[in-house]
Every structure is written in structure tokens, then in C-alpha cells.
Amino acid sequence: MNTMDRRRFLELCGLGGGAVFASALAGCSGMGAAKNADAADFYFVQLSDVHWGFRGPENPDPTGTLPKAIAAVNALPRQPDFIVFTGDLTHTTDDPEERRRRMAEFKDVAAALKVPTVHFMPGEHDASLDRGAAFQEYFGATHYTFDHKGIHFIVLDNVSDPGARVGSEQLEWLKADLERQDKDAPIVLFTHRPLFDLVPKWDWATRDGAQVIATLMPYRNLTVFYGHIHQEHHHLTGHIAHHSAKSLMFPLPAPGSQEKRTPLPWNPAVPYQGLGFREVDAEPRTARLAIQEFPVVAT
């Protein structure tokens, strides 16, 4: 996809939903931008909720789905600048050895991605039973920052605490990091659970998420990408947009649509239905983002 095509995505700002969702770091206003006038447009890919090690009728191809997504990413006409996995790389297990075996396998499979820069973060399935110990052995820190072409990226861990808290120590770290940013700086925050109370009775929340959001609110061009809920979902808290991603193992029901959040059954008529990944087009000069969703397709 060329630059002109990406600009056309950005022009779709305001449509919402569907295959293309154009968001913006500035709530689609396009106002506010990176101070770095030379920042070039780029895109990254978000993969989420792989649940490597899961076995169940909800996905009869549990070891083939991630490779299909990786092949699709590798086949993109122009490669993304980087890839981010927003947690639940593995399906949880009470056996610490099995947890490490799943992480090692996942890492081997993910190594087939052609893009050299891949950022990982944990989900509760990876980290909540050992406070992130195994994850750190295989993938490094559970929270960190990086900068890319004029955008500041923050990876926030709301899963290593089994009670789904970011925690006071990490919150102070976040505040200190944000204090170094301009209030108009384009910022993207990756996390696993929703930071807002999406469906608390399904455990779709972060216990101290309100404190996190209050910390983020002064920043006018900040967008959140997360996983956990196994479906595309878009939500605003004030001016901050929160975008969840599809899973690469099984979809979950729409928020609050039924009593229990049981996985949706596999549809043999439409294999891999509800599974997918997304690319996010970034235009740092105007602080705009555009999202394009891709399905996993049978090959």
C-alpha cells in the first residue's frame, strides 16, 4: 500500500467501525502534532491474544492460526516498521515448565516474522501466576517505552499483578515518563486489559485503571491499543481513544451481550471467523492514526 493510499485511509476519519477505522491521536481532529516536522509516515502491525497452547473445539487449528497470520503479515506489499503483540502470547497453565515450553514455542513461531523489530508484552495468561517471571526470561521487561519517528510509545503492564492492577510503582514510573513529554506530543500506549470499566463482571477492566486514565488525560494526542477481549472494539474516555484487537485463537462475545463470556464456537462454514490482526497507519506530523483490520483466512 503506498503513501497516497494511506492518506486516503486518513480521509475516512469519522466513519468508525467496519474494516477501516480511522482514529486519531487527537480524536480525529487532526489538530496537534509532533514537533518533529520531519517525522515520516509509517505503519505498525498489532497482533494479539495468540493463546499458544490452547486446545479446544473453539479452534481446531490451534497451531496453524498464528502461522497463517504471520504469513499474511510477511506478504504485505510493504513491511511495517515494527510489530507489537499485545499480550496473552500463551494460554495459561498451572505448570511452570509447561508455561516456559509454550513461551519457547511461541517465540520460535513468531521468529518467522520478516520484520526485525517486534515488541512483546504479557497478558494475564502469561504473567499473572508468576508475576511475569517466565515472561521476563523469554521476552524481557513487562513495561517499557520506545520512540519511533516522532511518536512516543508506552507499554504498560496491567497483568503481572494477579489482581489486575498497574500498581503504584508503575504508576509513578508512568507519571515520570509522561512528565518528560509535551502535552501535545503524539503518544501511543499499549496495554493488555482495557484501562476503563468495559465489563467488570467479565473481568474486562483494570482495577486501578481510573488512576491510569487520570494520569493520561492531560495529554491531548494519546491513543490506547489493547487486547484481552478478542474482538475489535472502540471506546472513548474523554478525548482518549481505546482500540482493542482481535485474537488469533478464538473470538469472545460482544461486551455484556450474554451472562458469561464464553468463547464463540468455531464456525466450520467460515473458518477463522472473528480472528485477525490490524495495521495502524501513523502520520506523526498531523498526529493521526488509521486502522485497517485483516482477517485470518484459510489457505
Partner: peptide, 16 residues
């Protein structure tokens, strides 16, 4: 009404 209660401290394989 019908009020769901749940364990919200991740406790293992069957937590959900």
C-alpha cells in the same frame, strides 16, 4: 436482579 459474582484475582487454569 441477577448479579454476577466472580473471582477477580487470577488463580490458575480454571480462573475464568
Amino acid at each position: 436482579g441477577r448479579w454476577t459474582f466472580l473471582c477477580d484475582n487470577f488463580c490458575g487454569e480454571g480462573h475464568e
